[in-house]
Design a protein around this nucleic acid. Structure first.
Length: 256
DNA sequence: ATGGCTACGATCCGTAGA
């Protein structure tokens, strides 16, 4: 089975690209971020016609997350329980005996800003939530836009980015704290081509220059990591007309 | 050189993304 994550940067604008990609890649489960619409604006019927059920936590203009699945979604939970946050960034559901958590982690804007402090607090709350979910669900996948490039090899120009938001030491420490709950970065379970990224700035022809960051990730609990046979980033939708600035990340899992 | 796109909801520019 294929589990994917994609920050679509407006599900309304990106619906044609999303439908085309679903038909081509045929993922079984997809975590979507940055819907930028409340639930009434979510294209539930078009996705249903494409074979996908959806769980949605929408928000106007900003944020908004969804999980698409060919199999039924149950036990849907929005947000981080106990962490009061009006921003719609987290959605969990169970599908085929696997717990899936879709995350859109805060951007952080600039090191030292209020949004940066919010990002670090948010990551601490996520860490505690994931530790609890792991205890309850051995088969756990956490997929989304983490807005952290874990290592320098995940950055096109580490010198230029040194100390900046997405790569700063506190953010990378917060990222490692997620892994220390027992999750694996599926992408790094395998040999990968150098300079593989998941996001490229719209400006400065960044995609053509491959001036990107790897900030979108699929994390897997030990039993799922054991079943994982591949993890890739699909650059093809980034080449289409009017693309999202992010590319989908896919993890392939052997059936249990 | 600190910009450069894109989406959104508001107007005909500001906010945010990363």
């Amino acid at each position: 089975m294929k589990l994917a994550t994609w920050n679509v940067n407006s599900v309304k604008v990106r619906l044609p690209q999303l439908l085309e990609w679903l038909a081509q890649a045929r993922p079984d489960v997809v975590c979507l971020q940055e819907l930028k619409t409340e639930e009434p604006g979510f294209p539930r019927e078009a996705l249903e016609a494409a074979g996908y059920a959806s769980a949605v936590s929408g928000q106007k203009t900003y944020n908004g997350v969804a999980i698409l699945s060919r199999a039924p979604l149950t036990e849907v939970v929005g947000g981080i329980p106990g962490f009061d946050d009006p921003q719609k960034r987290v959605l969990a559901a169970t599908v085929s005996g696997m717990r899936v958590i879709c995350v859109y982690c805060p951007n952080g804007q600039a090191v030292g800003s209020d949004k940066y402090e919010y990002k670090l607090q948010w990551f601490a709350a996520l860490r505690d939530y994931l530790a609890k979910e792991l205890a309850a669900h051995p088969r756990l996948a956490v997929a989304g836009d983490f807005n952290v490039a874990p290592e320098d090899r995940d950055v096109h120009d580490p010198k230029a980015w040194e100390g900046q938001v997405h790569v700063s030491a506190p953010e990378r420490t917060a990222w490692r704290a997620l892994l220390e709950t027992g999750l694996k970065d599926s992408f790094r379970l395998f040999e990968q081509p150098e300079k593989t990224f998941s996001w490229w700035d719209y400006r400065m022809m960044a995609f053509r220059r491959n001036a990107g960051l790897r900030i979108d990730h699929v994390l897997l609990s030990a039993p799922l990591a054991e079943a994982c046979t591949a993890s890739t980033i699909d650059k093809s939708p980034r080449k289409l007309e009017r693309p999202s600035d992010h590319a989908p990340v896919i993890a392939e899992l052997r059936p249990s």
